[in-house]
Design a protein around this nucleic acid. Structure first.
Lengths: 198, 198
DNA sequence: GGTGTTCTGGACGGCATGGTCAAGAACTCC
DNA sequence: GGAGTTCTTGACCATGCCGTCCAGAACACC
C-alpha cells in the first residue's frame, strides 16, 4: 500500500560512493550528494539517514564488493600465487594512471577519518583482517603448488604483502609515473615472494 | 619602524600542524586554527595567507624536518642498515600506539587531498623522492658494510622499503594492535633485507 | 473510489564557514 | 615627540552547510 521508491538503492550508493571517493568525506557536501544521486533531500535522508550513516553504508558496500572479488579470483585462479601477485600489481594496472591516482576508497577514508571516526577505523580493521585471511589462504595454496617457499609462514607473508600493496597505493596517489609504480610493486613482490630454489 | 610581531612563526606553524594532523584539512576550521594558534584573524591571514597556503606551509615545514631528521640519523648511524630498519620499525615504535594511530601528516594529507589539490600531490612526490634517495644511500652503505646482499639494486630495495613503511603506517592508522603492527613491520623487513649468507 | 501508507521535492531555519576590512596599537627611526 | 610602517583585534559579510519538516503525490488494498 505504500508509495514505491522511484530510485534504485544500489545505483544511488554507487553514485554517492564516487563522489566521496573523488572529494573525500569532509569535502563532499550534501548538495553534491543530492546532485549526483538525483534524489531530493527527503528521499536521501529517509533512505540512508544522515551523511555519516550514508558514508558508512557506502564504505561497507565497497569493502564487501572488494572482498567478494578477491575471494572469487582466488577460487577461479589456476595458481594461488597469481592472486597474490595481481593483488599488488593491480594497483598499477591502469596504464593511464587514473586508477592509481584515485587510490582505494577505504585507504583514503581511513587516512582522512580514522582519528575522528572510530567506525571507519573499525571497518578498516575488519576489511584488512579479511583480506589478510584470503591472502594467507592463497599463499598456503601457493606453497602446496610449489610457488612459494614451503618453510615460510603464510600469514607473515600475507601481512607483508598487504602492507606492500597499501604502500604502493599510497605512492600511486601522489601521481607517480605508472611505470615507476609498477617497478615498485615488482620490486616488493620479488623480495616478498622469492621463488623456491628447485 | 614597523610594529614587531607578538608571536613566533614556528610555534604557530607547529600548533596549526597538530590541528591539521588530528582533524584533517577539510575538517579543520579557521576558528580551530585561530584558537590553537592564539592569533587574531588579521594576524594569521596577514602572516600566512588563507587556509590553503597555510596548510602548504605547514606541510613543507613538516616534510623538511622529517628529511633533515632522516639525513642526520644516517650521518650519525654506525651502520646504514640500522637506519633503514628503524625507518620501518619506528612506525610501531610508540608502545601506546598513539603515534601509529596518528600516522604521518604527509601520508594522511595525500590520501585526503591528492585528487583535488595538485600542490599536495607534488609535495608528496618531492618528499618521497628525497626519502628514496636517502634510503638508497643507506642501503648502498649497508652493502659495503656487508649487511645487505651486494648483488641487489639499492634503489629497488629503497622503493620497496618506502612502500612497506607507508603500508605499515596505513595499517597503524586503523588502530591495529601495536605488537601486531610491529610484527608486520618485521615480517616485511626480514624479506626485503635478507642478511647475506656469509 | 476511498483510505492508509510511504515516497518526493523543496522550502525553511539556524548556524558555521572562510575571508575582508578598518580602526587603533606598538614599535623604530629621525 | 612626530611620522611612517606593520601588527592586532574583532566586527562584519556573504555564502554554504546540514538537517528538519511539510504539503502533495503515488501506490496497494478494500
Amino acid at each position: 500500500m505504500p508509495r514505491p521508491r522511484e530510485f534504485d538503492e544500489d545505483r544511488v550508493v554507487l553514485a554517492v560512493r564516487d563522489e566521496f571517493w573523488d572529494k573525500g568525506y569532509a569535502a563532499t557536501s550534501m548538495d553534491d550528494l543530492l546532485r549526483v544521486s538525483g534524489l531530493g533531500k527527503g528521499s536521501l535522508y529517509g533512505a540512508f539517514g544522515d551523511k555519516h550513516r550514508l558514508f558508512l553504508r557506502v564504505l561497507r558496500d565497497y569493502d564487501d564488493a572488494n572482498l567478494r572479488g578477491l575471494r572469487e579470483r582466488l577460487d577461479a585462479a589456476p595458481r594461488g600465487v597469481d592472486v597474490v601477485r595481481e593483488f599488488v600489481l593491480g594497483v598499477a594496472g591502469d596504464p593511464t594512471g587514473a586508477a592509481a591516482r584515485r587510490g582505494c576508497l577505504l585507504a583514503n577514508s581511513t587516512a582522512e577519518l580514522a582519528t575522528s571516526t572510530p567506525d571507519v577505523a573499525a571497518e578498516a580493521r575488519r576489511s584488512y583482517d579479511a583480506i589478510t585471511a584470503i591472502l594467507t589462504e592463497a599463499l598456503a595454496r601457493a606453497q602446496r603448488e610449489g610457488d612459494v617457499d614451503p618453510g615460510a609462514d603464510p600469514a607473515g607473508i600475507a601481512r607483508a604483502v598487504l602492507a606492500a600493496q597499501l604502500g604502493v597505493m599510497a605512492l600511486g596517489r601522489t601521481g607517480m609515473d605508472v611505470a615507476e609504480l609498477d617497478a615498485v610493486a615488482r620490486s616488493a613482490l620479488t623480495r616478498l615472494l622469492p621463488t623456491p630454489s628447485r
